[in-house]
């Protein structure tokens, strides 16, 4: 199986932060400036022809990996079975970006129905500037995914034609899947004496 992420690396070396390969799943970590050219090439190139954007999601790494107990899994796969793999330490975790302000990842899952291969793109973003280009011009399915990520994480997509909340209501304040959203905070539309106690 050709290493797709390495092909991306060879062509877009300046935009690439890292490549990962874990159990036949390939990931390319890229700068957000490279998203549009890389996405256009991944869709149009005959050897790639990623015609299906399966999913877009986001991750909030607000406290993730900052302590030893919450350190993530090893970057490189271990030859040992998972239950014998050494406990990961904080030092094994390299985000690929040096900025201390790093907080979010936007994750794209691509699939090619011609070659039946998959690729994952990850874009690290900072908490001060959580903005990335919209892919709606390349894959139409990006439209609702990006609205959902805006709704849940407050990450903005420049160039999106209709970046409104998709699941929650317009009156909702904040973005509930951010790790600093209070877990018990409720914002009822229909306010009554009985639910006022749980409301801000």
């Amino acid at each position: 199986m050709p290493a797709l992420a390495h092909t991306v690396q060879a062509k877009f070396a300046s935009q690439l932060i890292a490549t990962q390969r874990y159990r036949e799943q390939e990931t390319a970590v890229i700068h957000r400036e490279g998203l549009l050219p890389i996405a256009r090439w991944l869709k149009s190139d005959a050897a790639m022809s990623f015609d299906f954007l399966m999913d877009i999601s986001a991750v909030d790494y607000l406290k993730f990996g900052r302590t030893l107990s919450s350190a993530p899994t090893l970057k490189t796969p271990s030859p040992l079975p998972y239950y014998m793999t050494p406990k990961p330490t904080a030092e094994t975790w390299q985000r690929g970006v040096s900025n201390d302000d790093y907080r979010f990842d936007v994750v794209y899952h691509l699939f090619s129905s011609r070659h039946a291969h998959r690729l994952r793109l990850r874009i690290p973003l900072t908490s001060a500037d959580p903005v990335v280009d919209s892919l709606t011009g390349i894959w139409a399915s990006a439209n609702w995914y990006e609205r959902e990520i805006w709704d849940m994480f407050g990450i903005r997509f420049t160039g999106h034609p209709n970046l409104r909340r998709i699941l929650l209501y317009e009156e909702f304040q904040g973005h509930p899947l951010r790790k600093d959203y209070p877990i018990n905070k409720r914002q009822p539309i229909l306010k009554t004496p009985a639910n006022a106690a749980n409301s801000p």
């Binding site: 509930p176 877990i183 018990n184 905070k185 409720r186 229909l190 009985a194 639910n195 749980n198």
Partner: peptide, 12 residues
């Protein structure tokens, strides 16, 4: 017990 669910319809 989250941001989106009504905690019992007797609150409304």
């Amino acid at each position: 017990d989250d941001y989106t669910t009504v905690l019992g319809i007797d609150t409304i």
